[in-house]
Amino acid sequence: MSAAAILVTDLGKAFGPRQVLRGVDLRVARGELLGLVGPNGAGKSTLLRTLLGLTAPTRGRVDVLGHDPARDSLAIRRRVSYLPGETGVYLQMTGAQFLRFAAGFYPRQQAGLQARLLDGFQLPLQQRVRSYSAGMKQKLALVAVLCPDVDLYLLDEPDRALDASVRFFLRDVLLTLKRAGKTIVLSSHHLGEVETLADRLEFLLDGVFVPSERLTHARAQLRQRPRVRLHRGAALPPGAREVQREPDGTLVIETDADPMAWLRSVPDGTVDSAEIGIPRLEDLYQLLLQHDRRDGGVG
Protein backbone atom coordinates (compact mmCIF):
# COMPACT_ATOMS: atom_id res chain seq x y z
CA MET A 1 0.00 0.00 0.00
CA SER A 2 1.27 3.46 -0.88
CA ALA A 3 2.28 5.70 2.06
CA ALA A 4 0.65 8.66 0.36
CA ALA A 5 -3.12 9.02 0.27
CA ILE A 6 -2.92 10.43 -3.24
CA LEU A 7 -0.12 10.07 -5.74
CA VAL A 8 -0.54 11.60 -9.18
CA THR A 9 2.13 11.51 -11.85
CA ASP A 10 2.03 13.38 -15.16
CA LEU A 11 -1.76 13.43 -15.21
CA GLY A 12 -3.33 14.68 -18.42
CA LYS A 13 -6.94 15.04 -19.43
CA ALA A 14 -8.34 16.39 -22.67
CA PHE A 15 -11.93 16.95 -23.72
CA GLY A 16 -11.60 16.79 -27.48
CA PRO A 17 -8.95 19.30 -28.51
CA ARG A 18 -9.13 21.14 -25.16
CA GLN A 19 -6.42 20.18 -22.68
CA VAL A 20 -7.85 20.57 -19.17
CA LEU A 21 -5.02 18.93 -17.22
CA ARG A 22 -1.52 19.07 -18.65
CA GLY A 23 0.95 16.95 -16.74
CA VAL A 24 -0.17 17.36 -13.13
CA ASP A 25 2.06 15.87 -10.41
CA LEU A 26 0.66 15.69 -6.88
CA ARG A 27 1.38 13.89 -3.65
CA VAL A 28 -0.93 14.17 -0.66
CA ALA A 29 0.18 12.50 2.56
CA ARG A 30 -2.26 10.63 4.78
CA GLY A 31 -3.84 13.02 7.27
CA GLU A 32 -2.90 16.06 5.20
CA LEU A 33 -5.30 18.88 4.33
CA LEU A 34 -4.53 20.14 0.85
CA GLY A 35 -6.07 23.29 -0.57
CA LEU A 36 -6.54 23.51 -4.32
CA VAL A 37 -7.01 27.00 -5.63
CA GLY A 38 -7.29 28.33 -9.10
CA PRO A 39 -9.61 30.29 -11.34
CA ASN A 40 -12.69 28.80 -12.99
CA GLY A 41 -11.76 26.33 -15.70
CA ALA A 42 -8.29 25.72 -14.29
CA GLY A 43 -9.03 21.99 -13.97
CA LYS A 44 -9.73 21.65 -10.22
CA SER A 45 -13.03 19.79 -10.62
CA THR A 46 -11.59 17.57 -13.36
CA LEU A 47 -8.67 16.68 -11.09
CA LEU A 48 -10.99 15.72 -8.22
CA ARG A 49 -13.20 13.68 -10.58
CA THR A 50 -10.16 11.89 -11.92
CA LEU A 51 -9.07 10.99 -8.40
CA LEU A 52 -12.42 9.33 -7.84
CA GLY A 53 -12.49 7.55 -11.20
CA LEU A 54 -15.47 9.52 -12.47
CA THR A 55 -13.38 10.83 -15.34
CA ALA A 56 -10.77 8.77 -17.16
CA PRO A 57 -7.40 10.47 -17.61
CA THR A 58 -5.91 10.83 -21.06
CA ARG A 59 -2.45 10.11 -19.74
CA GLY A 60 -0.53 9.70 -16.50
CA ARG A 61 -0.76 7.60 -13.38
CA VAL A 62 -3.10 8.02 -10.42
CA ASP A 63 -3.04 6.19 -7.10
CA VAL A 64 -5.65 6.93 -4.46
CA LEU A 65 -5.47 5.03 -1.16
CA GLY A 66 -3.48 2.34 -2.93
CA HIS A 67 -5.91 1.87 -5.81
CA ASP A 68 -5.93 2.94 -9.43
CA PRO A 69 -9.20 4.81 -10.12
CA ALA A 70 -9.26 3.61 -13.71
CA ARG A 71 -9.35 -0.04 -12.62
CA ASP A 72 -10.71 -0.03 -9.10
CA SER A 73 -12.88 3.03 -8.74
CA LEU A 74 -15.38 1.24 -6.50
CA ALA A 75 -12.73 0.36 -3.90
CA ILE A 76 -11.79 4.05 -3.81
CA ARG A 77 -15.37 5.28 -3.57
CA ARG A 78 -15.95 3.03 -0.56
CA ARG A 79 -13.27 4.95 1.33
CA VAL A 80 -13.83 8.42 -0.10
CA SER A 81 -16.60 10.94 0.37
CA TYR A 82 -16.95 13.43 -2.44
CA LEU A 83 -18.72 16.76 -2.68
CA PRO A 84 -19.34 17.62 -6.35
CA GLY A 85 -18.91 21.15 -7.62
CA GLU A 86 -22.58 21.29 -8.55
CA THR A 87 -24.74 20.86 -5.46
CA GLY A 88 -26.32 17.46 -6.09
CA VAL A 89 -29.35 17.14 -3.85
CA TYR A 90 -32.73 15.60 -4.67
CA LEU A 91 -35.30 18.37 -4.69
CA GLN A 92 -38.30 16.08 -4.25
CA MET A 93 -36.98 14.65 -0.96
CA THR A 94 -37.13 16.28 2.44
CA GLY A 95 -33.80 17.17 4.00
CA ALA A 96 -34.09 14.23 6.40
CA GLN A 97 -34.91 11.81 3.56
CA PHE A 98 -31.92 13.01 1.59
CA LEU A 99 -29.56 12.54 4.53
CA ARG A 100 -30.92 9.02 5.14
CA PHE A 101 -30.52 8.24 1.43
CA ALA A 102 -26.94 9.52 1.31
CA ALA A 103 -25.96 7.81 4.57
CA GLY A 104 -27.31 4.46 3.39
CA PHE A 105 -24.35 3.96 1.06
CA TYR A 106 -21.73 3.94 3.82
CA PRO A 107 -21.42 1.37 6.62
CA ARG A 108 -20.33 3.88 9.28
CA GLN A 109 -21.37 7.43 10.06
CA GLN A 110 -19.84 9.93 12.46
CA ALA A 111 -22.89 10.54 14.65
CA GLY A 112 -21.22 13.21 16.79
CA LEU A 113 -20.13 15.19 13.77
CA GLN A 114 -23.59 14.93 12.23
CA ALA A 115 -25.19 16.31 15.38
CA ARG A 116 -22.67 19.16 15.41
CA LEU A 117 -23.25 19.98 11.73
CA LEU A 118 -27.02 19.88 12.04
CA ASP A 119 -26.86 22.05 15.11
CA GLY A 120 -24.56 24.52 13.38
CA PHE A 121 -26.43 24.64 10.09
CA GLN A 122 -29.98 24.77 11.53
CA LEU A 123 -31.58 23.15 8.48
CA PRO A 124 -35.36 22.63 8.25
CA LEU A 125 -34.99 18.89 7.69
CA GLN A 126 -38.71 18.15 7.50
CA GLN A 127 -39.17 20.50 4.54
CA ARG A 128 -38.64 19.46 0.95
CA VAL A 129 -35.24 20.38 -0.46
CA ARG A 130 -37.12 22.16 -3.27
CA SER A 131 -37.90 24.96 -0.80
CA TYR A 132 -34.27 25.39 0.32
CA SER A 133 -32.10 28.35 -0.67
CA ALA A 134 -28.80 27.74 -2.50
CA GLY A 135 -26.89 28.04 0.78
CA MET A 136 -29.19 25.58 2.55
CA LYS A 137 -28.77 23.05 -0.25
CA GLN A 138 -25.02 23.39 0.03
CA LYS A 139 -25.21 22.88 3.81
CA LEU A 140 -27.34 19.78 3.33
CA ALA A 141 -24.88 18.39 0.79
CA LEU A 142 -22.04 19.10 3.23
CA VAL A 143 -23.76 17.18 6.04
CA ALA A 144 -24.27 14.24 3.66
CA VAL A 145 -20.64 14.30 2.53
CA LEU A 146 -18.81 15.00 5.79
CA CYS A 147 -20.65 12.52 8.03
CA PRO A 148 -19.59 9.19 6.46
CA ASP A 149 -16.62 7.73 8.33
CA VAL A 150 -14.14 7.38 5.46
CA ASP A 151 -10.42 7.97 4.97
CA LEU A 152 -10.47 10.71 2.36
CA TYR A 153 -12.74 13.68 1.68
CA LEU A 154 -12.68 15.35 -1.73
CA LEU A 155 -14.54 18.63 -1.51
CA ASP A 156 -15.11 20.71 -4.62
CA GLU A 157 -15.81 24.25 -3.44
CA PRO A 158 -17.41 23.32 -0.12
CA ASP A 159 -17.76 27.01 0.79
CA ARG A 160 -19.82 27.90 -2.27
CA ALA A 161 -22.99 29.88 -1.48
CA LEU A 162 -22.09 29.99 2.23
CA ASP A 163 -21.86 33.22 4.16
CA ALA A 164 -18.78 34.14 6.17
CA SER A 165 -19.98 32.84 9.56
CA VAL A 166 -20.90 29.46 8.11
CA ARG A 167 -17.58 29.27 6.28
CA PHE A 168 -15.88 29.89 9.61
CA PHE A 169 -17.90 27.09 11.23
CA LEU A 170 -17.09 24.78 8.31
CA ARG A 171 -13.41 25.52 8.75
CA ASP A 172 -13.62 24.31 12.36
CA VAL A 173 -15.39 21.14 11.26
CA LEU A 174 -12.73 20.41 8.66
CA LEU A 175 -10.01 20.94 11.23
CA THR A 176 -11.79 18.44 13.51
CA LEU A 177 -11.77 15.91 10.67
CA LYS A 178 -8.10 16.58 10.07
CA ARG A 179 -7.29 16.08 13.74
CA ALA A 180 -9.10 12.74 13.53
CA GLY A 181 -6.50 11.71 10.94
CA LYS A 182 -8.64 12.14 7.83
CA THR A 183 -7.11 13.28 4.57
CA ILE A 184 -8.89 16.21 2.95
CA VAL A 185 -8.50 17.81 -0.44
CA LEU A 186 -10.61 20.86 -1.01
CA SER A 187 -10.86 23.35 -3.80
CA SER A 188 -11.92 26.92 -3.22
CA HIS A 189 -11.99 30.44 -4.53
CA HIS A 190 -11.39 31.91 -1.08
CA LEU A 191 -7.62 32.05 -1.09
CA GLY A 192 -7.23 33.64 2.33
CA GLU A 193 -9.51 31.15 4.09
CA VAL A 194 -8.00 28.08 2.45
CA GLU A 195 -4.57 29.36 3.32
CA THR A 196 -5.39 29.53 7.03
CA LEU A 197 -6.94 26.06 6.94
CA ALA A 198 -4.75 23.96 4.66
CA ASP A 199 -1.41 22.37 5.46
CA ARG A 200 -0.39 23.11 1.91
CA LEU A 201 -1.75 25.07 -1.01
CA GLU A 202 -1.52 24.18 -4.68
CA PHE A 203 -2.44 26.75 -7.30
CA LEU A 204 -3.81 25.23 -10.48
CA LEU A 205 -3.61 27.41 -13.55
CA ASP A 206 -4.51 26.25 -17.04
CA GLY A 207 -4.19 22.59 -16.12
CA VAL A 208 -0.82 22.66 -14.34
CA PHE A 209 0.30 23.48 -10.82
CA VAL A 210 2.16 26.73 -10.49
CA PRO A 211 5.59 26.04 -8.94
CA SER A 212 5.67 27.19 -5.33
CA GLU A 213 8.62 29.58 -5.83
CA ARG A 214 6.75 31.31 -8.63
CA LEU A 215 3.67 31.56 -6.45
CA THR A 216 5.71 32.97 -3.56
CA HIS A 217 7.25 35.55 -5.86
CA ALA A 218 3.87 36.56 -7.28
CA ARG A 219 2.37 36.88 -3.81
CA ALA A 220 5.30 38.96 -2.63
CA GLN A 221 4.74 41.20 -5.61
CA LEU A 222 1.05 41.48 -4.80
CA ARG A 223 1.85 42.48 -1.23
CA GLN A 224 3.46 45.55 -2.74
CA ARG A 225 0.17 46.39 -4.40
CA PRO A 226 -2.26 47.77 -1.84
CA ARG A 227 -5.89 48.41 -2.69
CA VAL A 228 -6.96 51.88 -1.69
CA ARG A 229 -10.09 53.98 -1.85
CA LEU A 230 -9.31 57.65 -2.18
CA HIS A 231 -11.40 60.37 -0.63
CA ARG A 232 -13.79 61.94 -3.12
CA GLY A 233 -11.88 64.34 -5.35
CA ALA A 234 -8.48 63.44 -3.89
CA ALA A 235 -5.54 62.66 -6.20
CA LEU A 236 -3.18 59.73 -5.72
CA PRO A 237 -0.31 60.99 -3.54
CA PRO A 238 3.22 60.78 -4.95
CA GLY A 239 5.27 57.59 -4.48
CA ALA A 240 2.57 55.29 -5.96
CA ARG A 241 1.25 54.40 -9.40
CA GLU A 242 -2.20 53.20 -10.38
CA VAL A 243 -2.09 49.61 -11.69
CA GLN A 244 -5.79 48.99 -11.99
CA ARG A 245 -9.09 50.75 -11.28
CA GLU A 246 -12.01 48.56 -10.21
CA PRO A 247 -15.65 49.32 -11.06
CA ASP A 248 -16.40 50.44 -7.48
CA GLY A 249 -13.60 53.00 -7.62
CA THR A 250 -11.04 50.97 -5.65
CA LEU A 251 -7.51 51.49 -6.94
CA VAL A 252 -4.86 48.80 -7.08
CA ILE A 253 -1.58 50.68 -6.77
CA GLU A 254 2.11 49.94 -6.82
CA THR A 255 4.30 51.82 -4.37
CA ASP A 256 7.95 52.76 -4.80
CA ALA A 257 8.74 51.98 -1.15
CA ASP A 258 7.16 49.75 1.47
CA PRO A 259 3.35 50.12 1.18
CA MET A 260 2.93 50.65 4.93
CA ALA A 261 5.55 53.42 4.89
CA TRP A 262 3.83 55.00 1.90
CA LEU A 263 0.45 54.82 3.61
CA ARG A 264 1.85 56.49 6.75
CA SER A 265 3.27 59.27 4.59
CA VAL A 266 0.06 60.22 2.76
CA PRO A 267 -1.70 63.38 3.98
CA ASP A 268 -4.72 62.97 6.24
CA GLY A 269 -8.06 62.81 4.42
CA THR A 270 -6.60 61.47 1.17
CA VAL A 271 -7.20 57.75 1.61
CA ASP A 272 -10.54 56.49 2.98
CA SER A 273 -9.54 52.83 3.27
CA ALA A 274 -6.61 50.60 2.40
CA GLU A 275 -6.02 46.87 2.15
CA ILE A 276 -2.42 45.70 2.35
CA GLY A 277 -0.89 42.23 2.31
CA ILE A 278 -4.07 40.29 1.48
CA PRO A 279 -3.68 39.05 -2.10
CA ARG A 280 -6.93 38.12 -3.78
CA LEU A 281 -7.21 35.03 -5.91
CA GLU A 282 -8.23 36.99 -8.99
CA ASP A 283 -5.27 39.38 -8.56
CA LEU A 284 -2.91 36.44 -8.21
CA TYR A 285 -4.44 34.83 -11.29
CA GLN A 286 -4.07 38.01 -13.33
CA LEU A 287 -0.51 38.50 -12.23
CA LEU A 288 0.45 34.92 -13.06
CA LEU A 289 -1.20 35.28 -16.45
CA GLN A 290 0.81 38.43 -17.04
CA HIS A 291 3.95 36.47 -16.15
CA ASP A 292 2.88 33.76 -18.58
CA ARG A 293 2.44 36.19 -21.42
CA ARG A 294 5.78 37.68 -20.63
CA ASP A 295 7.55 34.31 -20.26
CA GLY A 296 5.60 32.47 -22.96
CA GLY A 297 4.11 29.62 -20.91
CA VAL A 298 2.92 28.32 -17.58
CA GLY A 299 5.19 26.54 -15.14
Binding site: R49, L52, L54, L74, R77, R78, Y82, P84, E86, G88, V89, F105, Y106, A141
Partner: peptide
Protein backbone atom coordinates in the same frame (compact mmCIF):
# COMPACT_ATOMS: atom_id res chain seq x y z
CA UNK B 1 -22.37 13.17 -10.41
CA UNK B 2 -23.60 12.61 -6.85
CA UNK B 3 -25.09 9.29 -7.95
CA UNK B 4 -21.96 8.13 -9.78
CA UNK B 5 -19.81 9.03 -6.77
CA UNK B 6 -21.74 6.64 -4.47
CA UNK B 7 -19.78 3.56 -3.41
CA UNK B 8 -21.76 1.21 -5.61
Amino acid sequence: EFLLARPV
